[in-house]
Write a protein that binds this DNA or RNA. Structure first.
Lengths: 188, 188
DNA sequence: CTAGTCATGTCATCGAGTGACATCACCCAT
DNA sequence: ATGGGTGATGTCACTCGATGACATGACTAG
């Protein structure tokens, strides 16, 4: 089965990343991706819902990690405190491989379709955090506002981290921007 | 030319809204939309970039209105103050027709593809506001944070307004939620 | 050894989206 | 009025993403 170690999904993912980077997302057909792995286009769609999804592998793990951190935050923590814990947890998933993140970001930001997919992943994440906050007793609209504010910090921080040539410490950037959001929104 | 008053784009838009509402977005083909207006599928794509875009007509006007309001805010205004002005301006565009907004929201929220498109419209809007803030001399990452925080308020407020059966006053809800974001983020 | 299961291949098909070219109405300058 | 743009639409052909139905071949459990 594991004739070429790694599994069909992993091989397809790598082939797709290469081709998307080489000639762009739109200019790459699913058949080409499949060919490069010796598989069929039909098989590609058995492993990935669509051509875009191949770039969004770790998103479930990220979400689970963040929701767990949010849930495990001390009951005394404020809504934003709990969200801060989730953001801190996110850095473990996002901050691993700076160069890989840069490659991936280059591909995604070059294509509106992929940006759309990225945004809906973030929206799903925000919804999960919001649900987690409501479980902690936070009422609406506060839960949604806090959760989405957290995602904003995540996005802005990650964007800046990934576009900076050197790999700074994502974790400190994250908490720094969380504080920054507070001062920005407070200054009326 | 205006044989059936309204213009081809408007007629196509109406037909699409009807069909999307009747049988759902995915279950509607572009050919069906075109048939209902007596036009061709090819013509549909001459008026709309794709099947989704037909639901996002006023987005340029909304963006322009908000950016103008942001730009016209007094120079003494804080970043969030200017964003608040933009949010206030947005209610004029968004708060017009509650029942139409409800119909549109029902269609969009029932389909992930349409949600993706909605999200990228919001992201574009956030980018425009951020650019407007930078023109006002606001540095990064504050500009992005303030702009995106404003979009969060817009989304949460509009979502709640459009899912509430009665048409409350969007403008007061908007400013109320803007204050609420401040208290939520401040409480550490 | 056999039955069942899982991954993949093969085939057929639909629908979105696009390029190329034809047509028709309308408007304007001569 | 007439002939030549110009713009909107139709027609045709095609690519590609995505999915359903069915076949096959390998590997596993009994």
């Amino acid at each position: 089965m594991a004739r070429w170690e790694g599994g069909a999904a992993a091989r397809l993912r790598e082939a797709a990343m290469e081709l998307y980077a080489e000639r762009g997302f739109e200019q790459t057909t699913v058949a080409e991706i499949a060919d490069r792995t010796g598989l069929t286009a039909r098989t590609f769609f058995r492993h990935f819902a669509d051509k875009r999804e191949v770039l969004f592998a770790g998103s479930e793990a990220l979400q689970e990690g963040m929701v767990t951190a949010l849930r495990d935050a001390p009951p005394s923590a404020t809504p934003m405190g709990a969200v801060g814990a989730a953001l801190d947890a996110s850095t473990v998933f996002l901050g691993r491989d700076h160069t890989h993140s840069r490659r991936r970001h280059a591909i995604i930001s070059a294509n509106p379709e992929l940006l759309e997919r990225e945004l809906i992943k973030m929206a799903t994440l925000a919804a999960a955090l919001s649900a987690g906050l409501r479980e902690r007793g936070v009422p609406e609209p506060d839960a949604s506002l806090a959760a989405q504010a957290g995602i904003v910090v995540l996005q802005v921080t990650f964007e800046r981290w990934v576009t900076s040539p050197a790999a700074t410490d994502l974790r400190t950037e994250m908490s720094s921007n969380l504080e920054r959001l507070q001062t920005v929104t407070t200054a009326q």
